[in-house]
């Protein structure tokens, strides 16, 4: 996935000189996860910028650059480091279109490697996505495959609205797959195609007995669990990769829940007011009559993301997903 993100950045930067990337340690070293490796040599230090260590400054500068007509991509080094930039994102990025008659949206992308599972120090394993989905004016997306990572990142950059681009760092290097030479849409970005690319859910696995909604690093775990359910119990789970967390693909969610009649939501972030709550509520509001069981949730717990000795206890595991699925299936 890291290579796919890097490819996307290179492709869009080559086509569009409005695109600049900025963040801590992203130019000279190519970022702590190497997502921006090689960009400095290719595009120069005007467009690939190592900044001082200050997230409000990074996001705030990106907003100002956007006002001048650039398309900045800001990297936040780790999930829990985004909080100093939170005010800029919430107060300004999210409201700039609204405060300018729609004329000057903050056309920025904030890339955030997020989540646990990489045995990182404290405060390097948060899942803050629901903090952003609660803020009107933002789009929030998270890919789970290399192909999606490239296409969704390019689409997010070309999208005029501010996009919080959540990168599941646990599967940065573990998910692999072929990525086509070019994105599946025009890099000119003037045809509105970004809406299609980043706001639609993807069916990762077909099935008609249980709909499993998930995103990011828990997608492969849900695929594993679905394989076990099929092999052991003959239950075919449909795995829906949400991709876009705001806006949610309501049509796809309701269709999958209605057709499977049972649904489970899985994510790594804490349960309280999380994406799972919204998906569950959406299904209950609109497809109650089609359900054979209440929607289940398998999530992180409502505790701080732990020190890594305990992170396997915290993170949804295949076993926990199976237990959650069986509870919904046997209700």
């Amino acid at each position: 996935m890291v290579e796919a993100l890097n490819l996307g950045l290179r492709q869009v930067m080559a086509k569009d000189d409005r695109v600049v990337v900025l963040g801590q340690d992203i130019a000279q070293t190519g970022g702590v996860f190497r997502v921006t490796a090689g960009l400095l040599d290719e595009f120069g230090d005007d467009r690939v910028i190592d900044t001082p260590l200050a997230e409000a400054g990074i996001v705030g500068s990106a907003i100002g650059m956007s006002l001048y007509g650039m398309l900045p991509v800001a990297e936040i080094q780790f999930d829990a480091f985004v909080y100093p930039g939170f005010e800029q994102i919430v107060v300004h990025a999210a409201r700039y279109a609204w405060r300018t008659r729609g004329q000057c949206p903050a056309s920025i992308v904030v890339r955030i490697p997020y989540g646990g599972g990489v045995r990182a120090p404290e405060l390097h394993s948060d899942c803050p996505e629901a903090l952003f989905t609660h803020v009107p004016g933002l789009k929030v997306v998270s890919p789970s495959t290399p192909g999606d990572a490239r296409d969704m990142l390019v689409a997010a950059i070309l999208d005029p609205d501010p996009v919080i681009f959540m990168e599941p760092k646990r599967i940065y290097r573990s998910v692999r797959g072929d990525v086509s030479d070019e994105p599946s849409f025009s890099l000119a970005g003037d045809d509105g195609i970004y809406n299609t690319v980043i706001s639609h859910a993807r069916t990762a696995r077909a099935g008609g007995d249980l709909a499993v909604f998930t995103y990011g690093a828990t997608v492969p775990l849900c695929m594993d669990a679905a394989g076990t359910l099929s092999a052991d119990e003959g239950v075919e789970a449909r795995v829906v990769d949400l991709r876009s967390l705001y806006p949610l693909d309501a049509g796809a969610i309701i269709a999958a829940a209605s057709e499977c009649r049972r649904a489970l939501v899985v994510h790594e972030a804490p349960r309280m007011a999380g994406i799972g709550a919204e998906v569950s509520s959406l299904i209950h509001e609109r497809a109650m009559a089609d359900l054979d069981a209440p929607v289940g949730r398998v999530t992180g717990f409502d505790v701080p993301s732990p020190q890594f000795a305990n992170e396997d206890d915290y993170l949804p595991s295949v076993d926990r997903i199976l237990a959650g699925a069986r509870a919904v299936l046997s209700w």
Binding site: G60, G64, M65
Partner: peptide, 12 residues
């Protein structure tokens, strides 16, 4: 909070 915007604009 508008000061970083002013910087970003002149920087661009």
């Amino acid at each position: 909070t508008h000061l970083p915007h002013a910087v970003g604009l002149a920087w661009a």
